[in-house]
Amino acid sequence: MAQIFATESLAPGFADPVHDSQASFRAALAAFARPGRIERVPVSPGIAAPGSLGRAATAFALALLDLDTPLWLSPSMSGAAGYLRFHCGCPVVAEPRKASFAIAGGDVPALDGFDLGTDEFPDRTTTLIICVESLRTGGAVTLSGPGIQETASLSIEGLPAGFWQQRVELQAMFPRGVDIVFACGDELAALPRSTRIKEA
């Protein structure tokens, strides 16, 4: 399915690349700084969400991807390949482990298949964006760690079975790991690798 439809790739990106990128990044930064808290991405409604990518995920990608960031797309997200190649110039790679960013839907593969970095360079890891059905309903987990005063709760609808268990297993590998962004519609919430979770 490597076919690229011209109409998709030409769907518009940010109306104001400088300030929309900044606003999208700040929403992402706020989300990373306060794991589990839902942030709205305040960009103009002009950006099109190709394939199954929501607007928040699209804005995140437009703000942060470029030719220096290999991208992996899960099969359910492959419709966005042309659009992201066109607007970001990012190479699309076939292996999750080679990606600095990955976008998936309910078909998230095994988390340890991504680039988990090394103990010496834990910054060289994949950042995973998961487009989910809801950030407010579904299985709830309790979060604690940096960015969270005591505990926080996060409910996500649309994750494959066993997802949280995999994420819990990665905690022991810290500082290696995967930083995850859950995106739905205009909103996103982050789960950086430093966050410790307990299934409710």
């Binding site: 930064l29 990373f32 942060l64 600095s100 890891t125 950042t127 500082p175 930083d179």
Partner: peptide
């Protein structure tokens, strides 16, 4: 730099 900042926040 923004990508670096997100990594920095994720690994305090």
């Amino acid at each position: 730099i923004r990508r670096a900042i997100l990594k920095a926040v994720a690994v305090p």
